[in-house]
Design a protein around this nucleic acid. Structure first.
Length: 444
RNA sequence: GUGGGUAUAGCGUAGUUGGUUAACGCGUCAGUUUGUGGCACUGAAGACCGUGGGUUCGAAUCCCACUAUCCACCCCA
């Protein structure tokens, strides 16, 4: 296959027959966010490279080797966002949104870009649903944000997704901890695997998460961050847990979760599934109290999370979750002959004006083929228009589910008559009734 | 960047001691007489068997290289 007809490595096409899965996730995520008081924000796909270097951190993998940086004509370089938080916070500062009172709560659905080697659940262009909250220092805010993420996962129908939480403290307690950790691992330096020997300098906390059997054993007795938290951080973490308990949200303290972006402080969390391979973090986030100040805003506590839409969909597929089915054609108008074709165009136009999903033949199929097509696209009703119908001004409206046929006039009353039959059929449909009653139950 | 797997029609696959027109299912299109779908039957279109070399009288089938893709490490959503 020629390169020009091939999508770039690590990107994905969503074909028409699959988009409904995306609609489902996007709709549930944004509706849930709005219900929690978050408003949508839309920001550019690319930002000044420096923004990511300063926020994500210049020692992180994301900045060091995964950024898509493009130079425009002139001297500035831009980078396709590798994550959503930096640009969002930048926008909140730049537009003065943080002066409009606290807390500020925003959400977004956008694509991110990282130059990584693709594998299951990891793409170079991927999509994130993210939420950010600024101006709330209280641990209740942490719990609230986690509750929002949890709600989204629940409403998508996902099961067995484990919430892992941890506190990585503030910069003060973390540097204490780093020191202790380094001292500990120095003692085992020669036994550590190669990558971990490198981590010793760069980020000793990562050694805790190593998969190597030997390193795991060494790490078992390593000092824990939770023992090094200052009083305030410790209290914050306690409060978070109290709130989670109040909300009935199960969690696991996992001292090994360490986020790979530098801006995190105190609370970090991940929702993890084992259903989609090695890249099982379906949602990751935490608090970043220093970021806003670091980017030039007034010191303002903040926190947020990102969810990978591809990973959500993968998990839903693997768990057999329900996606909202795409809407199907309400009425297909088949036609034969010039007069019938003209009438079909006219009626479909009127039906669409009234909001109906209506279609007619566009490729010149025979009657039988039109019927097959109507069946294939799942049309609820079909009308056949030929010379006989045009002359008599009356046609048969066929219910494709029951096979039942009803006479219908082709004059101005057509749309109203159809409307009546269409909705009464919906009410008599068992699936529809079940749907309505389950919605009513949810609302109780 | 480091490993391992795979590459046959739109999709899913068969095709292993190398041998004439590469098979099947789904899908697509058309028909099965008279103006009405779902089932069944018939037929058609659609593949330079990832690319390039090599071995051989002869390769989808063996060898090499390349490319793509998948999975894992790493990292993260």
């Amino acid at each position: 296959m020629a390169a020009i007809t091939q999508r770039p490595k690590g990107t994905q096409d969503v074909v028409p027959s699959e988009v409904y899965k995306w609609y489902t996730v996007e709709q549930i995520a944004s509706e849930t966010a709005r219900q929690f008081g978050f408003k949508e924000i839309r920001v550019p796909t690319f930002e000044d490279t420096g923004l990511f270097v300063r926020s994500v951190g210049d020692t992180t993998d994301v900045v060091q080797k995964e950024m898509y940086t493009v130079s425009a004509t002139g001297d500035s370089t831009f980078t396709l966002r590798p994550e959503g938080t930096a640009g969002t916070i930048r926008a909140l500062i730049e537009n003065g949104v943080l002066n409009e009172g606290f807390p500020q709560k925003v959400f977004y659905i956008l694509s991110c870009f990282r130059h990584e080697k693709p594998q299951a659940g990891r793409l170079r262009e991927f999509h994130q649903f993210g939420c950010e909250m600024a101006g709330a220092a209280n641990a209740r805010a942490d719990a609230d944000v986690i509750a929002l993420a949890k709600s989204v996962l629940d409403r998508l129908g996902l099961k067995g997704i484990e919430l892992n939480i941890n506190s990585i403290g503030c910069p003060e307690c973390r540097s204490q901890y780093h020191k202790a950790l380094k001292e500990y691992f120095e003692g085992y330096k020669d036994s550590l695997c190669e990558t971990c020997q490198g981590r010793l300098e760069k980020n000793p906390m990562r050694i805790l998460d190593c998969k190597s059997q030997e390193d795991k054993q060494i790490a078992e007795n390593a000092p824990l961050i939770l023992d090094y938290l200052c009083d305030d951080c410790k209290e914050h973490f306690e409060q978070l847990q109290n709130n989670l308990r109040l909300m009935g949200i199960d969690y696991k303290i996992n001292a090994r979760i360490v986020r790979g972006l530098d801006y995190y402080t105190r609370t970090v969390f991940e929702f993890i599934t084992t259903d989609i391979g090695a890249q099982g973090t379906v949602c990751g986030g935490g608090r970043y109290d220093g970021l806003i100040e670091q980017l030039g805003g007034k010191p303002t506590p903040a926190l947020g999370f990102g969810m990978g839409l591809e990973r959500l969909i993968l998990t839903m597929e693997s768990q057999g979750c329900d996606f909202k089915k795409p809407e199907k054609c309400g009425i297909y108008i088949a036609s034969m002959g010039q007069k019938g074709e003209s009438k079909a165009v006219e009626l479909v136009g009127k039906l669409r004006e009234e909001g109906f999903f209506a279609e007619y033949d566009l490729v010149g199929r025979g009657l039988k083929a039109q019927m097959k097509y109507a069946d294939k696209i799942g049309a609820s009703f079909v009308v056949v228009l030929g010379d006989n119908e045009i002359d008599s001004g009356e046609a048969k409206l066929k219910n494709m589910r029951t096979g039942e046929q009803t006479d219908i006039k082709l004059d101005d009353s057509f749309v109203d008559s159809f409307s009546g039959i269409f909705f009464s059929d919906m009410l008599s449909d068992e699936n529809f009734r079940n749907m309505i009653s389950s919605i009513a139950k949810d609302g109780e």
